[in-house]
Amino acid sequence: MDLFSFGNVIVYVNKLIKFINSIFFVILIIGLSFALIFSPVDYLQGDTVRIMYVHVPSAWIGISIFSLIAISSILNFVFKIKNLFLIVKSLAPIGLLFTCLSIVTGSLWGKPTWGTWWAWDARLTSMFMLMVFYILFIFSFKYFKNKEYLPKILTALSILGIINIPIIKYSVEWWSTLHQPASIKFTGTSSIHSSMLIPLFLMLLALLLYCALIFLMKYKTEIIKIKKQNIKRL
């Protein structure tokens, strides 16, 4: 367990920050070049398809981070692992940012393709609900300082919020929505050409590296906060 002590963790954090800084811009520039220049225009949507390269990774990241936060909160409630609490606190703002970005870029994609900025259809509404859950999470951290109640509130929000995740995923199949069904399937054949799939994964990788960088910075801040409180006892 000494491997996960704050002293050892901060050494890995510093090394990881350096590593991400060294490769991030190269991957971002390659990803942006493919997304904006080299990837083909869609036969139906024209150049608006390029919005996909920021919209889809943002949505995936928003959903994945919430799943991670929810599982960590429940595990923290059961096993009382302090590190998990710090992880949840550091991840929540990143998840909120990417959920908001997926909604805004989706709206900018919706106007030229559907003719409207917003519709209360199942996919859009469930993504909006995800954003609300993130806001509730962040508000809980800010306004509930009582260490006894906070894990209970976070667990309750996690259980309610995690129900929303399969609704987001299957909303386009369960209901008739404006939003198109998934083109990328992890099990089965995807209906998207590799000339579009490669830039999509490059942009996903660039944004994931960005998320990791912000997470590590926030996590390090949380460790310093704890050490600062205990400095006189060291």
């Binding site: 942006l32 904006l36 225009v41 024209g46 150049d47 608006t48 390029r50 919005i51 920021v54 919209h55 943002s58 703002p93 990143i94 940012l97 908001c100 970005l101 805004v104 870029t105 900018l108 994609w109 106007k111 030229p112 960005y210 960088l213 912000i214 910075m217 926030k218 801040t221």
Partner: peptide, 26 residues
């Protein structure tokens, strides 16, 4: 961008600015 420049550039601009803002804050 084939007449869709506003929508495409606005999307990339918003993502860039938001990411830079969160990085600056962190």
């Amino acid at each position: 961008m084939g007449g869709y420049g506003f929508f495409v550039w606005a999307s990339f601009f918003i993502v860039t600015v938001s990411c830079l803002f969160l990085y600056y804050r962190a």
